[in-house]
Design a protein around this nucleic acid. Structure first.
Length: 487
RNA sequence: CGGGGCGUGGCUCAGUCCGGUAGAGCGCUGCGUUCGGGUCGCAGAGGUCCCCGGUUCGAAUCCGGGCGCCCCGACCA
């Protein structure tokens, strides 16, 4: 057993740990193109489970999926001023095709607002055609200078929802509905409870009137923007002539929203739950929830042990548990244990000749609570029946632990730039202060601390006693802000 | 775009200072032995030493140029 089999501990170098764990757990690997990555089956399986859950939440709230093309006329991107400025530095542009120079270059979509609202304009005439509630699952390309697996890559997978409404109120309501869905999804599926709220003007989406975001706190106490929901007002409708005739017969511009989450969530999951042994995948997202490892000896017990392993696996599947037998003969059981732990499978069942005799199974858990043992031996029938509860329990334990960690690392009532700096330097996560709303204060904080305004927290995340003064010491506080160093 | 590091079997790297037959560990293949927390043994396969040029009898090593990747800071889901 060489040293290289061990991962760098989180406490030693969190970034190194993250890189190793993502690759060694076979979530993803680097592709030959700088800044882009291959999502491997284990990572993609987790993403598929995220997709399934989100997709049904979108459908339950009346959204439909569609697909818009990858290539967007350059002139479309250029139409909304702030939008172009926001995305210009990271655009990949196709200038040649079919062996010759194109008359008009195409942008590879960094996001699809422009093409989508141009199409909506064709489809909408009357208020009766509204609302349009569409989502697409797609890849997008943003040429980033510095990349990290899942967290920031040149190409990534996401969903982008785009809606059009007859009134501002309805669009705003949609924006918040989605924010709530994101929050619930992160809470209940990733067990990664974010704080939610409004982005400051300097942090909002290029082209939006208002942006809302979910911000999660990673184990290194840096914040991760995990999902955004934008109220676009009529900015795009005006540029793409997305008009409708109202009940009163007036011609009006539609009101739009857009919202998205990406494969970045996989990175968030890793940095929320992972430990020094590897990734920990919350049960609801785990492609394999229970791995069954037969203890194979090269003797006459072998075939009976293997048969039992398959039988147990089949019975777990009948109960709706995603189970898998690892019957590989060339690896010792210990090897398999380490491998599945690194990948974060929630539970392992071991079946050996002794268990066969005693009619029991060995159950090992990926996450061992304080004072508990990793392995226990349980009578077979009872063991099998116990898994749906075990999985649900683990799911909520992970959620609780993450919520407790977030709260423990959130500092409220900080009243001055000096205190803010001190808090962040000594490793605080979210630090909440008052703010006058002056962008110059954001600049100052950034220079001083490298932290940014992550979010103006929604009501449920605000401090009980609202801050009175701006953190700059200059004037009264108009709103509370959660600051953090961010990914 | 600044700073740092690195390009040598699949992976991690030694060898480079001081030029002389290309190495180790892990992984891989075969056989045997093991198998309840990274078994052990034997035999094997596998290399344009990032690329181009130069110096030299001889270059992974020296010189010139180029390319690529990773990490840390300014911009970003």
């Amino acid at each position: 057993m060489g040293e290289e089999k061990k991962l760098t501990p989180r406490g030693e170098d969190f970034a190194a740990w993250y890189n190793e764990v993502v690759q060694r757990a076979e979530l993803a690997d680097y592709s030959p193109v700088r800044g882009s990555m291959v999502i491997r089956p284990w990572g993609y399986g987790i993403w598929e489970n995220m997709q399934r859950a989100l997709d049904s939440m979108f459908k339950e709230t009346g959204h439909e999926n569609a697909y818009f093309p990858l290539l967007i006329p350059m002139s479309f991107i250029e139409r909304e001023k702030e939008h172009v400025e926001g995305f210009a530095p990271e655009l990949a542009i196709v200038t040649q095709a079919g062996g010759k120079e194109l008359e008009e270059p195409f942008a590879i979509r960094p996001t699809s607002e422009t093409i989508i609202y141009a199409m909506y304009a064709k489809w909408v005439q009357s208020y009766r055609d509204l609302p349009i509630l569409m989502n697409q699952w797609a890849n997008v390309v943003r040429w980033e200078m510095r990349t990290r697996l899942f967290l920031r890559t040149a190409e990534f997978l996401w969903q982008e929802g785009h809606t059009a409404h007859a009134t501002a109120e309805e669009a705003e309501e949609e924006t918040l509905l989605i924010l709530g869905i994101y929050r619930r999804f992160m809470d209940e599926w990733i067990a990664m409870p974010p704080i939610t709220g409004l982005k400051t003007d300097s942090e909002k989406f290029a082209g939006a009137v208002r942006s809302y975001a979910c911000e999660a706190l990673m184990q290194d106490n840096r914040a991760l923007q995990a999902g955004t929901s934008h109220f676009l007002g009529q900015n795009f409708a005006r540029q793409f002539d997305l008009k409708f005739q109202s009940v009163e017969g007036r011609e009006e511009y539609a009101w739009n929203t857009s919202w998205g989450v990406s494969t970045r969530l996989v990175g968030g999951m890793v940095m929320t739950h992972g430990d020094d042994a590897g990734v920990v995948v919350p049960p609801r997202l785990a492609p394999v929830q229970v791995v069954v490892v037969p203890i194979l000896r090269g003797d006459d017990t072998q075939s009976r042990v293997l048969a039992k392993a398959h039988e147990v696996c089949a019975r777990l599947k009948e109960l709706g548990v995603r189970a898998k037998v690892d019957a590989r003969e060339h690896l010792s059981p210990g090897n398999k244990f380490y491998e599945w732990e690194r990948k974060g499978v929630p539970f392992r069942v071991e079946i050996g000749p002794k268990d066969l005799e005693k009619g029991q199974l060995a159950i090992a858990r990926r996450v061992v609570p304080e004072g508990a043992k990793r392995k226990e031996f349980v009578a077979e029938a009872e063991a099998i029946a116990s898994f749906s509860a075990r999985l649900e329990d683990l799911q909520s334990e992970l959620r609780e632990a993450a919520a407790a960690r977030r709260e423990a690392n959130t500092l409220r009532g900080v009243g001055s730039l000096g205190e803010l700096q001190e808090a962040l330097d000594s490793g605080a996560g979210f630090v909440l202060t008052g703010w006058s709303g002056d962008p110059a204060v954001e600049e100052r904080v950034k220079e001083l601390t490298r932290a940014t305004a992550r979010v103006v927290p929604g009501p449920e995340f605000r401090s009980e006693t609202p801050p009175q003064r701006c953190v700059s010491g200059d004037g009264p506080s108009k709103m509370e802000v959660a600051w953090a160093r961010a990914y």
